[in-house]
């Protein structure tokens, strides 16, 4: 379908972008890669008064190091994330999950920041950001603020981003020590969203699992951490039995939906299987 009419601005700096957003009227939408926004506009689920296109804001692109964190610009495309050497070195889980997103064409346009700001419960990157304890740097009329992942995802398609604000960059702590990672995605066809997925990062120490961080995709309106499983794994033996036993708690505290792909009870089952598989792989089993 054809989107409803809208005003259009194309700033080239963050400051210009914030100004364009402020002046855009009642309903302003930021356009990043457009891979989620344009479809919902075409379906007329969204009919913004103004679209602020930030594809020309160069300072929002790219990955850099800042002490013990990686800083990923919001406009870094999925493709650039997959091929970035710093991400490969310090946060391979991000790249692994991003590789499962959609198809090549979508990955060339879609962005890391756009995927996180959209906060689609079936999207793959929010759970990864949550598992890695990423931080979100947000610019607004009053300056910049930083929000931890745990507070960023508020509800279905809703984040801590306020009106007038722009997601600028995402800070991902570099993981040091003997970490293994795995993104286990379950979907029916290759280019589809996750029915359920599990992001796992596991640190091993002397044959034990010292620490496990587990993010869950599409097990509720927001990404979730599998806290009970994480607790059960902390200090556990790195054995198939210990992992399987901990994974059985993966659905605790989740509230998955029932839809064409899966009813809630099946999702609760799937998340246990996928958690077992993701943690086993991340633990090197």
């Amino acid at each position: 379908m054809i989107p409803a009419p809208f005003q259009y601005a194309r700033p080239t700096t963050v400051d210009e972008a914030l100004q364009a957003i402020a002046e855009g009227g009642e309903d302003v939408k930021i356009l990043a890669g457009g891979q989620s926004l344009i479809p919902v506009m075409r379906l007329r689920l969204a009919a913004p008064e103004t679209v602020v296109d930030i594809t020309r804001v160069g300072e929002l692109r790219g990955v850099r190091e800042d002490g013990d964190a990686l800083v990923i610009g919001a406009m870094t495309t999925h493709h650039d994330v997959i091929t970035d050497p710093l991400i490969a070195q310090y946060a391979p889980l991000v790249a692994e999950a991003t590789e499962t997103v959609a198809d090549r064409q979508v990955r060339y346009r879609g962005t890391f920041g756009g995927a996180l700001a959209h906060a689609d419960p079936a999207g793959d990157l929010p759970a990864v950001a949550l598992a890695l304890d990423a931080e979100f740097v947000i610019a607004g009329p009053g300056g910049r603020r930083t929000v931890p992942a745990a507070d960023f995802f508020v509800d279905y398609l809703t984040t801590a981003l306020e009106e007038g604000e722009l997601l600028v960059e995402i800070r991902v702590p570099k993981l040091t020590g003997q970490w293994g990672m795995r993104y286990e995605k379950f979907n029916r066809v290759a280019q589809a969203w996750s029915i359920v997925a599990v992001a796992a990062a596991v640190r091993r120490e002397d044959g034990h699992i010292a620490e496990a961080r587990i993010g869950l995709t599409n097990m509720g309106p927001t990404p979730l951490r599998a806290r009970a499983t994480e607790a059960a794994l902390a200090g556990a033996d790195a054995t198939p039995e210990a992992i399987a036993s901990a994974a059985r708690q993966a659905a605790e505290g989740t509230s998955p939906s029932s839809d064409l792909n899966a009813q809630a009870d099946y999702r609760e089952h799937l998340v246990q299987v996928l958690t077992r598989r993701a943690v086993s792989a991340a633990a090197g089993l």
Partner: peptide, 8 residues
Amino acid sequence: TAGTNAYG
């Protein structure tokens, strides 16, 4: 029968 939540 519900459609998926993907895409919002």
